[in-house]
Design a protein around this nucleic acid. Structure first.
Lengths: 244, 244
DNA sequence: AAGTGGTCTAGACCACAAG
DNA sequence: TTGTGGTCTAGACCACTTA
């Protein structure tokens, strides 16, 4: 293997992921080169390399076995949505060549008192101004999810119309002033109600898979909170847990 | 603060968690001492301290803000089940003083061909011997979940009866030969069927929250796979995601 | 015994927020 | 400017698996 120029961990993660997906790194048994080899190849210290490998482990792409080596993990099933990666849903699902589209979207300003739900650890005053967004989205042309999101207007002035129909995630990625630090997710199941029921073509009272997100800036301040209802026949959420 | 003896990261995490929960570490605003202070206090290197803090971040107990400091996060709602901690459900729920009990349990040996479901990345041969366990469990006396688990008999010879009615997790913790490395989780929602429906006192077709687990040894070999159906009115799953 | 990943230290420099 | 957390290096030793 040729020797590469030194790079930072973020880039290293991307390169590793790409080379793994292209099948360039692992042998026929899915075994990666040793850490020593990878250190020389990417010209990084062991610390940096292990940080990168740890991130790949956390995402479930590889696992490491002491005394044996590092191995790539088998591909996961297609219809699944990974709760832990760092992409928006649009980007994630685009990878295996499928497509999320927004068929209906609306936006308005409301106060916290008018919101349909509130963040879990709520410290909003009743008059906090919120941007409310409602969207219905399809997966490969089939109804897939109904979403209601609230963004704190004190943090983000407005959300461009294009982003509504594309990816709000992309908008934040490009906006340098807004750095997302962490997200709380609460997953539950409910009885479906209108208007999602008609959108999915299901009866009222049918199951729906619900994900409530609270999104925080890296400063720890609340940025947004949302609720997504999935068609239970089409959505599965994946996560991966390492033990320490 | 007194200076402590050097300790390893695992112990450090436990001590930090305990002192945080006792309110001994953070100030009135939930701010922790600086990394420099904590290094001296616990007598560890910055690397070790930051590994420990990263684990606490991953579990959602604290967050770190560059240029500002580290802060504890507000307590999460009680009825919630954290998907990311390293405890079994019995232990986790026992913390806030609530109680999981098993009201019905059965165990038998089956072959993989007879199993009701299989692991996602299935490489089991049809004649693989499995220990099948079925359990109905209550939370504070109320029906809470129905579980079906399969353990590879080639890895674990038998599961003692006491563990069936208590915590299988405890059994693995004590068994030094079995080290769990990682777990895949797939969360979905389904229409409820018997016998869970009667146990929960719900109609057939009502929603249920479903968690499918595949558990692997640290060697990467499959240990077990299971499916848990929760009463959708009583269960919420929590997870926390840091962005990189 | 050799090679793998796991833990840990000491130290440097950078990026960011706040006074 | 100061103090915070974020990134990165070089090097040591330990624990585990395999031959």
């Amino acid at each position: 293997m040729e020797r590469k120029k030194p790079i930072d961990i973020k880039t290293l993660v991307e390169e590793l992921m790409e080379e793994i997906q292209n099948g360039e790194l692992a042998d026929e048994n899915g075994k990666l080169p040793s850490e020593h080899t990878l250190m020389s190849y990417y010209n990084v210290s062991r610390y940096s390399l292990r940080q990168a490998l740890a991130q790949l482990s956390d995402m479930g792409f590889i696992y490491q076995a002491q005394g044996v080596g590092s191995f790539i993990r088998p591909e996961r099933h297609e219809k699944i949505r990974n709760l832990q990666n760092n992409l928006g849903i649009t980007e994630e699902i685009a990878r295996p060549g499928r497509k999320i589209e927004t068929v209906k979207a609306s936006q308005r300003i409301v106060s916290a008192a008018e919101a349909e739900f509130l963040p879990r650890n709520n410290d909003l005053t009743a008059d906090t101004q919120l941007i409310e967004i409602e969207r219905l989205r399809t997966l490969d042309g089939e109804p897939y999810l109904a979403e209601k999101s609230y963004y704190l207007q004190s943090v983000i002035k407005e959300i461009p119309k294009e982003s509504l129909y594309d990816s709000v995630f992309n908008y934040f990625e490009q906006n340098k002033d807004i750095k997302i630090g962490f997200i709380d997710k609460v997953i539950s199941s409910e009885e479906l109600s209108e208007p999602s029921a008609s959108f999915f073509g299901l009866k009222i009272g049918a199951p729906t898979l619900v994900v409530r997100d609270d999104t925080f800036l890296s400063s720890g301040k609340l940025l947004a909170f949302s609720k997504i209802c999935y068609d239970y026949r089409k959505a599965e959420l994946f996560m991966f847990k390492k033990t320490y």
